[in-house]
């Protein structure tokens, strides 16, 4: 299988002012991170807060080019190429003055694409994302889970074959989060995209992923790769499976060892 994301011996330091506050000349956030994600794989980075997982995603998204090591996306070196990706943050970043539909179409609008065609194309997706009938609502009228689905559909419309999701459900309450996970996994199993997902929620990581990469505290490095052998399509029942708890126990042990 082809590797869509290929990262080799990545190191990342922050210079001032963050480092200065810590009383050091620089702050090492990522140390010797190597990972690869193959096509249509769902991989999760799991680690304590401040372990640099969000920073890693920002580097892959091309938002920061000051790193050592290499990042290859679809075989192209990120240093010399601009590779578009789909990127989503914990904050939904919806524009309150734009309707659901016009928020979703934002990436097309930015790229000066064919809005009319895009509007037709996404009709089935709007339905699938549970947003039909809400196209002309303003985001302020929607629940947190719905807003995240709007943001996710907007992310889906960003061009690029890689989806980088940075704690997309982190701001939701427990029940909504579980519903969103169930929904995300069913959508993903139908559409299959390459996903690199960031979370600090163990259940979320195991439930969603093909592989979980466990990261250490700062400077973040990948301490263990766990392949999750649960068949797809997955259902919520799997969290009650003893095997699920095995994975959980193993991750907890790794995290407590740092």
């Amino acid at each position: 299988m082809k590797n869509i994301i290929e990262i080799n011996r990545l190191n990342k330091e922050f210079l001032n002012p963050e480092a200065e506050r810590q009383g050091e000349s620089s702050l090492k956030v990522l140390k010797d991170v190597s990972l690869s994600v193959s096509e249509n794989e769902f991989v999760t980075l799991l680690g304590p807060s401040g372990c640099g997982k969000s920073t890693l995603l920002k580097l892959i998204a091309g938002l920061d080019a000051t790193y050592e090591g290499s990042i290859f996306l679809s075989g192209k070196d990120l240093r010399s190429n601009n590779v578009p990706v789909c990127y989503m943050l914990q904050k939904d970043c919806l524009m309150p003055w734009r309707t659901v539909l016009s928020n979703i179409l934002m990436p097309v609008e930015i790229k000066k694409g064919n809005l009319k065609k895009a509007r037709e194309d996404i009709k089935p997706l709007i339905d699938e994302f549970g947003l039909s009938g809400f196209e002309n609502y303003l985001p302020g009228k929607l629940s947190g889970g719905m807003r995240q689905r709007v943001a996710l559909l907007r992310t889906y419309l960003m061009e690029g074959s890689i989806m980088l999701l940075d704690e997309p459900f982190g701001a939701l309450d427990e029940i909504t989060r579980i519903q969103m996970q169930d929904w995300l996994i069913s959508v993903w199993e139908r559409h299959k995209k390459t996903v690199l997902f960031v979370t600090h929620d163990l259940d979320e990581a195991i439930f969603l992923s093909d592989r979980v990469l466990v990261m250490s505290t700062r400077p973040g490095t990948i301490i263990k790769e766990l392949r999750i052998y649960f068949a797809r399509p997955r259902s919520r029942d799997m969290v009650l499976d003893p095997k699920f708890n095995e994975y959980k126990r193993e991750i907890l042990k790794l995290l407590s060892e740092g």
Binding site: K58, G62, P84, Y87, C93, P107, E109, I110, K111, M158
Partner: peptide, 24 residues
Amino acid sequence: EDMDQLLKVMGAKRWQAFRKVRIP
């Protein structure tokens, strides 16, 4: 900052981000 970064990943030019987000 989050909004700025998201627009940047979308490939927005500075003026586009300004017009579509900052002004409203």
